[in-house]
């Protein structure tokens, strides 16, 4: 039997994967944002666990960063945005839910195959979670593809960042602090800029449905 800390870490990894699937199947945007917050919380828990098990100090810092930014601030920002933009529900996704799920399952299998060589190279005790991290990234990508509403795509983008963060954590106990701070800042700025964009898009088209952007294409 594995040690308890390891078991809990595995549990967190599994929960992250589950949350990715939950996001993939969710039709309501508000719930999507909430799920993103939960994902952040699980990530925080995983980071704290890992910090406690390995004694790497900087992981405590990144846990704090995660909780401030991804669990509290960004979801708050997004919810406010949703309220002000008055959106509650995404229109039906492009592919039906069951179909998306099946594609998602295949993606996980693919991610697993992809993670095989990395897992062999890595020396961390958490290396078995690399496959899950890659899955989280790819599933978030899939979610961005299958959604029509811009906000859902931003959530997908953020969730993708979560996956990358988790991957770095499990492959090498986290990125250097400088990189981590940089990424956090990037994400923050990106969300702010995209928020401004939303208002612009809506002003232009009276809707956040992205297929309106297709009309910007030059017709030849």
């Amino acid at each position: 039997m594995l040690p308890w800390g390891q078991q809990l870490l595995d549990m967190c990894a599994a929960l992250l994967l589950l949350l990715s699937f939950a996001m993939l199947s969710q039709r309501r945007i508000v719930t999507l944002v909430n799920l993103y917050a939960v994902q952040g919380a699980v990530l925080t828990a995983a980071t704290l666990l890992l910090a406690w098990r390995t004694g790497e100090r900087h992981l405590y810092l990144s846990a704090a960063l995660t909780i401030v930014l991804k669990v509290t601030f960004l979801p708050w920002l997004l919810r406010r945005l949703l309220r002000r933009l008055d959106i509650y529900r995404d229109s039906e996704p492009r592919l039906n839910v069951t179909g998306t799920m099946l594609v998602g399952l295949l993606i996980v299998v693919f991610a697993f195959a992809l993670a095989q060589p990395i897992t062999r190279l890595a020396s961390t005790s958490t290396r078995s979670a690399i496959g899950i991290a890659i899955s989280v990234v790819l599933l978030a990508f899939l979610m961005m593809i299958t959604r029509r509403k811009a906000v859902a795509q931003v959530v997908g983008f953020l969730s993708m960042e979560n996956g990358v963060f988790f991957g770095a954590m499990s492959a090498s106990y986290g990125m250097p602090m400088v990189v981590e701070l940089g990424v956090a800042l990037d994400v923050l700025i990106a969300v702010l800029v995209l928020g401004v964009f939303f208002f612009q898009i809506r002003e232009q088209f009276d809707s956040l449905d992205l297929h309106h952007l297709e009309s910007l294409k030059e017709h030849d």
């Binding site: 595995d10 990894a13 599994a14 994967l17 589950l18 699937f21 799920m101 399952l105 996980v108 299998v109 697993f112 897992t119 078995s128 979670a129 496959g131 899950i132």
Partner: peptide, 15 residues
Amino acid sequence: LFAVLALLVQVLLGT
């Protein structure tokens, strides 16, 4: 889906 996820997680984390 839950069952399949359980299976995938079992194989993913089991290695």
